[in-house]
Design a protein around this nucleic acid. Sequence first.
RNA 1: GGGGGCGUGGCGGAAUGGUAGACGCUGCGGACUUAAAAUCCGUUGACCGUUAAAGGUCGUGAGGGUUCAAGUCCCUCCGCCCCCACCA
Length: 868
Amino acid sequence: MENPTSSYTPTEIEPKWQSQWQSQQLDATSEDTTKPKFYALSMFPYPSGNLHMGHVRNYTITDVIARVKQMQGFRVLHPMGWDAFGLPAENAAIDRGIHPAQWTTQNIAQMREQLKRLGLSYDWDRELATCLPDYYRWTQWLFLQFYDAGLAYRREAAVNWDPIDQTVLANEQVDAEGRSWRSGAIVEKKLLSQWFLKITAYAEELLQDLQKLKGWPDRVRVMQENWIGKSTGARVVFHTEAGQELPVFTTRPDTLWGATFMVLSPEHPLVESLTTAEQKEAVETYQAAAAAKSDIDRTAEDREKTGVWTGSYAVNPVNSAKVPIWIADYVLMGYGTGAIMAVPAHDQRDFEFARKFNLNVKVVVQPEGEQELLNGETMTEAWAGEGIMVRSGAIDGTPAGKGAGQSVAKAIEFLEANGFGEAQANYRLRDWLISRQRYWGVPIPMIHCESCGVVPVPEADLPVLLPDNVEFSGRGPSPLAKMTEWVEVDCPLCQGPARRETDTMDTFIDSSWYFFRFADARNDQAAVDPAKVNQWLPVDQYVGGIEHAILHLLYSRFFTKVLRDRGLVNCDEPFTRLLTQGMVQGMTYKNPNTNKYVPADQIADLNNPVDPNSGDRLEVFYEKMSKSKYNGVDPQTVLAKYGADTARMFILFKAPPEKDLEWDDADVEGQFRFLNRVWRLVMDYWADRPQTTTAPALNLSKSEKDLRRAIHIAIKEISEDLEGDYQLNTAVSELMKLSNAISDARKASDTMMASPIYQEGIETLVKLLAPFAPHITEELWQHLGHSESIHLQPWPESDPSALVVDEITLVIQVMGKTRGTIQVTAAADKATLEQLALESEVAQRYIAGKTIKKTIVVPGKLVNFVVV
RNA sequence: GGGGGCGUGGCGGAAUGGUAGACGCUGCGGACUUAAAAUCCGUUGACCGUUAAAGGUCGUGAGGGUUCAAGUCCCUCCGCCCCCACCA
C-alpha cells in the first residue's frame, strides 16, 4: 500500500516557516506588561563571517529557554547583536585592502542569514552592532559619564612596541616567543600615556556581590573571586636612612621583627634616589635587563632569584634594625606598594633570595612540639606554619595565626598604637587599561588642548565619528593618528588649537553595556530610557562560553554598578543566572610522530587510521573544533543535510549544556530518525484518525490509563528539567520516552487511535517538542488542524490525578540486598506492605531459617528485612 | 604553590541515600525486500550456571568508614581537566 502521508523534508518546511514567522512578526517582543518578564540572552558574537558549532550550541540553548518561557506565559526579550569592533577587521584591511567597515558589514549580513536558518526566536527589530554610530555614540557618552564620576583617568603604562613596524601591538599580535606577528621583531615595552577605568574603586563590592549570584556556576564565582584577589594584612611604613617614607604591604605583619632586608621592584620610583654612587651601574644594568624581559620570561616557573643591592638601608620601625634595600624583579610594581619587607625565615621567596645573596635569616616563629628548633643559619626552607612568636618584642609569646588574639591581630594593634602602620586590604585587581592604538574601535571622546589640558568632547558633539578614508599599512602610528584633518580640532573650552585623542577603546567596553541597550535599542535620544531598562533588566538567563568567566562578566558587573550609581539603572547585578556551555569537540586525527593533524577525508580507513604520507598509525581523540586541526564540522553542511531541527536536537541531547560535546555523525543520524518517527506518528494518526472521536470515557481502559500517565509524567519531568538548571539532555530523553509510549500504546490496542487520550498524547508530544524543534512541530501542528502557531500555545500542565497508580512495584530487600519485587496495591499501608512482603516467595526463600531482627518499610518503595 | 571540578557499560550519558546503567549511539540476531536503503522486532555490564531455563556472584578510579540500605554522605589515596600564580 502506498504511504498515505508525506515524508519529512526539513529543507522544505524549515525555510517556509522561517519566512512565515518573519512576516507574522511571531518573534516580536511582547509589550504586555501584565505578564511577568523574562530576558534570555546569548553572548553576542564577533562577526567573523562564519557561524561555527560553538555558536549553534550557545544560541540553541538560549532559544529553547526563550521559547519555553514564551509558552509558559512570560513576555520574553530574546535579542541578538554584533560585537563588531576589533582587530580581525583591521587585519583584513591590512592584508586584503578591504575597509574594516565593509568587511564587518558583509560578515554581519552573512552570519545573520546563517542564524536565521537555525530558527532562533530573535526579535530582529532590536538588532545592534557596536561599530555603528547609533551605538558607539552612547559608548562614548558612557565614557564621559565615567570621566565625570572620576572613574576614567590617564597615566603612563607599558605597551607592546614593534621596533620595525614602529607600531603598537595588541597582546594577540605577540606570539609565544615574544615576536611581532607581522615583522617578527622581538617586541619591546614602551611607556605611553593611556586611559584607565577605575574598576578598583568597586573591587570590594564586586567581590561581596558575588554572594548574590546564586544562579551562577560556582567555578565562575571562584574565578572572579581569585581574580579580584583580596588579601588582608597591614601597611607598614619603613623609613630610609635619609628619612624618606617607604611603605610596604604585608599579610604577615606579625613577622615584622624578622624582616632583615627590603626589596623594591626595579621600577619603583625611589630606586634612583636610593642608589648609591658605587651601586649605580649595577642597579641601572639590572633595571634595563628587567625592562627588556618579556612577560613570559618574568613569570617563568622556578626562576632563580636575581637582584641587586641599592647601597642604601632602611630602618625597621619596630626594632630600629638597619636593613639593606635591594631591588629584584620578583617584586612587582603593580601590586601593593611595589616594595616589600623581606622575612626570609617565614617566606619561601624571601628565603631563596636571602640564601642566594647571603642575607641574614632571623627566626621569629618557633614551631612547637616535636619539631626541631628552627635556626636561621641552618634551615633549608622557610617556615610558614604554626608556632609561637619569638624575638618579637611586644608580641613575643603570642601564638602565630590570623585568629582573634593571635599574632597578626596583636601586631596590627601594636602598629596602630605606635603609628607605624595600620590594617589594610589589598586587591590583585588592577585598573582597566582601555586605550588601544588602533583604528577599528570607539574613538575616545577627548581632546588635548595645549592651554586647557584634557577636555571632554561636549555631549552635543557626539558621536566622534571614525573617519572613513583611512590608510591601512600595519606600519607606523595608528591610522587615526595619521589623519591630520581629523586630529586637529578647536578646543571646546578656549577655541584654541587642539588635538583629538587618537586612541580607541578596548572592545570589552562595547560588550559591557549592550545588554542594557537591547531593552531600548532604537533610542536616539539617550543610551537607554531608564524606565525601559528597568522593565527588562537584569538579564534572567545569560548563556555563553566559559572563556568569558572573568573579563567580560566582571567588566559588565562593573559597568552595571557605575550606571546604577549614576542613576541610570536600578539593578546591582546584570545577570541573574549564568549558564556556561561546554565547547563542541570534533574527532581529531593526529600523527604522534610528526605532531601533525590529518584531515579525516585523507584517511582511507577510519577504523584503522593511518597517515597517508608516512603510514604511521594516527591518534584519535576529541578536541575543540578548529581549522588547524581539521576537526571542524560546518553548520551549513549539517543544516543542508538534516535541517536545523535535527542539529538542535542533537546538540541538546548529546551532552548536558555545561559539559563538552563530542560531535558524532551517527548520533546526528539518530536524532534525524527520532524526528522522522515523530513525524510518522503524528501523520499516521492524522491520516487514520477516526472521523468521530469517541466521547471521553468515564472509565479509562488500562492502556489508556497507562498512556495518560506517560503523558503527564513527560509534562512533569520536562517542565522540571526546564526549571533553573536546564537539564536539556534529559528533557530530550523524556520526549523520546513519550514518543515511545504513544507508539507502544498504538501497537497494543487497535482502538487506541480513536481514544481522546491518544489525541492528547499526540498533541502534547508536539507541544512539548516545540521549543526544541520549532519547525517540524509547527508543520505537524498545522497538519493537526490548527491555524494558530504552536509557539503561541500554552505550555501543557501536568495533572497530578493522572500520575496516580493503582499498583506499585515493591522492592523486597534482605539485609539491604534487593532480592526481588512484588506488585502491590498503591493504597496499602505500612503494616500491609510488611505483611505482603513477608509472605512473598522471595522473602521466604531468603529469610528461611533465620530470625527477623528488624524490618524497614519505605511506603511506595521497598521493604527491607534485617535478619540474623 | 593556591583554588575549583571530574572519575559510572564498547561510546555519549541517566539515577530527591532506596531495583545502578534511563534515553540514545554502536554491535549482534531476526522480519520485510529479488537485493539494498529505509522501517519494524529482539538483544547488548562482567563472570558463574544450565540443552534451555530458573538462578547466583561481582560491579560506579582505589582503600577505609557511617547507615537497615552508599554512585550519592564522611576520611585517606590515585588519575585526569580547568582557572590563578615570584601577589608579599
